[in-house]
């Protein structure tokens, strides 16, 4: 019943979607819509990255300098012009709160994909794999789109049908169920307390949080975005102690960059699932 309503909400918003929602304190209570289908993580890969960082021996107060050859992006250090020196934990803060590609890739260069994947295997997650950094899947998009030019080419459906970055076989991938397992780990493990704090400070209001417009409900999350792909994974906490991990991965039919309804349905679908679990 709930699954059918979630599917109908996805269809009505012009997207196909996968969702997994689980009660953090009663993990046998769950809602699943394609929860085991392979999906493209996009910037959601930054969540397992910071988990791996917090379990590593790196001193998180150590400061490193990001020079001008760093990765680029529209937000955070990725959008700045000059060299930046910052602690590892502040880089993690920017990677999560504003999806800073430069900060995330600098951390990935330190931690390495092998360690991130080892962290995932320690959680018995075999279908979630991180194979490259933000700058690497950005590079494949430019290569695959050529000779068409970015960003306009990224609204051309023929170009999108050939992008490796949108194919789970060729980029960072996972499943909705795997990602709620990562969230459960973050909400249970003491090492990960700073990640809980940081995810609750994510700036974007348009996806998961939009489904819970209640001042007394906390939403902590991390988005992921690529052409036609809109994702968010997060935890919703009610004042009565109810805590729910939700992972939503969508693909829109429309190739437009700006699709408020496709963003909002992530919140709507999550609320339908959480209402069922409560």
């Amino acid at each position: 019943m709930t699954a059918a309503r979630v599917r109908a909400a996805f269809t009505d918003a012009g997207v196909t979607g996968r969702l997994h929602a689980v009660d953090l304190d009663q993990p046998d209570r769950e809602v699943s819509v394609g929860a085991d289908d392979p999906v493209v993580l996009a910037s959601v890969f930054k969540v397992p990255l910071v988990v791996s960082l917090h379990h590593s021996t790196h001193d998180l107060t150590r400061r490193i300098t990001l020079g001008q050859d760093r990765s680029t992006g529209p937000t955070g250090v990725g959008g700045m012009l000059d060299p930046v020196t910052m602690s590892l934990r502040d880089l993690a803060y920017l990677a999560i709160t504003v999806s800073d590609n430069a900060a995330a890739d600098a951390l990935m260069d330190l931690v390495g994909t092998d360690d991130v994947n080892r962290t995932l295997r320690d959680l018995h997650l075999t279908r979630t794999v991180v194979v490259h950094r933000a700058r690497d899947f950005m590079r494949t998009m430019a290569e695959d789109a050529a000779p068409a030019e970015l960003p306009a080419a990224l609204t051309d459906p023929v170009v999108l049908s050939r992008l490796r970055a949108l194919n789970p076989d060729h980029t960072n991938r996972g499943t909705a169920r795997d990602l709620t397992t990562v969230l459960r780990h973050i909400w249970q493990h003491d090492d990960c307390a700073p990640i809980r704090h940081t995810m609750a400070r994510q700036v974007w209001p348009h996806r998961l949080a939009s489904g819970f417009p209640f001042d007394d409900v906390r939403v902590a999350g991390k988005t992921g975005t690529l052409p036609t792909i809109r994702n968010e994974v997060g935890v919703v906490e009610y004042p009565d102690g109810g805590r729910y991990a939700v992972a939503v991965f969508t693909r829109s039919a429309s190739t437009a960059f700006t699709l408020p309804q496709a963003d909002a349905v992530i919140g709507t679908a999550a609320r339908l699932a959480v209402e069922h679990l409560r």
Partner: peptide, 15 residues
């Protein structure tokens, strides 16, 4: 032909 496109910061991946 394509229109000019101005992705917004929430797009996360285009600067």
């Amino acid at each position: 032909g394509t229109l000019p496109r101005y992705p917004r910061p929430a797009a996360e991946y285009l600067s």
